[in-house]
């Protein structure tokens, strides 16, 4: 439903994206992996419409993102960014409530309270919802932000897209499981999910497809079983990998 075709973006002579193409399908989780600076977040921000590329185009349901009103866009796709900091103190529940903004003055606004509470419940954040966002830990904030995105897509009449930038980065293991299962379930319900991840085991658990990026380019794309192979990863990350059981682990050597 969201499709990027031959996206190229430059910033100060450096290529952030170099002819990257990607299509998100309803019911599918696409994971983006790659070393730091590979252009993963840039691609995610371009797919969300936040960044506009000079070359190439991103479309939603066939229409370029620039032709969509931001509100219509917001009713079809939600974004979870990294490290959201607030300007003034509000509670976690308030942050989730802001996700209902696109539905203001629509019949779906009647669902506001229910949508907020259901989203908090889904990410297991009901117990921390009354606390100030600023006092929450990194993982708790992350869950609140994911709940905000869920609340935003609650009531969407069309297949929705969810773009997440390293949603598991600061979560403990139990909450990683909650979030990854949630992502899978959303896809089962028909959502198109794009998620930037670092942990390759999380990728193999959650993703239907993987795209590997390096230096702004798409290096490889396909099902996790085809992509998560030591030789390919060694070429991208420049360190040796080995398989232990089901897990694919980097080999950290000591000098």
């Amino acid at each position: 439903m969201i499709a990027a075709r031959a996206l190229t973006m430059r910033c100060g002579g450096r290529r952030l994206l170099d002819e990257v193409s990607l299509e998100l399908q309803p019911g599918e989780v696409v994971a983006i992996i790659g070393p730091n600076g590979a252009g993963k977040s840039t691609l995610l921000r371009a797919m969300s419409g936040e960044l506009r590329s000079e070359i190439g185009v991103v479309t939603l349901e066939g229409r370029p993102l620039a032709a969509w009103h931001p509100v219509d866009l917001a009713r079809r796709r939600a974004v979870v960014s990294q490290n959201v900091a607030l300007a003034f103190p509000i509670t976690g529940r308030d942050v989730v409530g802001l996700g209902r903004l696109p539905w203001h003055a629509t019949p779906q606004a009647a669902r506001d309270v229910h949508a907020v509470e259901a989203a908090l419940e889904t990410v297991g954040a009901t117990g921390i919802a009354a606390q100030r966002y600023a006092t929450l830990s990194g993982g708790e904030r992350q869950r609140i932000q994911i709940a905000r995105a869920l609340a935003q897509l609650d009531g969407a009449a069309h297949p929705a897209a969810l773009l997440l930038d390293e949603p598991t980065a600061s979560l403990d293991i139990s909450h990683v499981g909650v979030i990854l299962r949630l992502i899978r379930r959303l896809a089962l319900q028909g959502a198109a999910v794009m998620v930037v991840l670092h942990d390759l085991n999380e990728v193999s658990f959650a993703a239907d497809r993987v795209m590997v990026m390096a230096e702004g380019r798409c290096v490889a794309a396909g099902p996790p079983a085809a992509i998560l192979r030591p030789r390919l990863l060694e070429a991208v990350y420049g360190i040796p990998f080995q398989r232990r059981g089901d897990a694919l682990l980097p080999e950290f050597t000591t000098d």
């Binding site: 974004v79 802001l98 903004l101 203001h104």
Partner: peptide
């Protein structure tokens, strides 16, 4: 309302349809 969305930051406000 849009200023409330801006509490989260400019990018987030845009993502919320502002």
């Amino acid at each position: 309302r849009p200023l409330n969305a801006l509490l989260l930051g400019e990018s987030e406000a845009y993502h919320l349809g502002v």
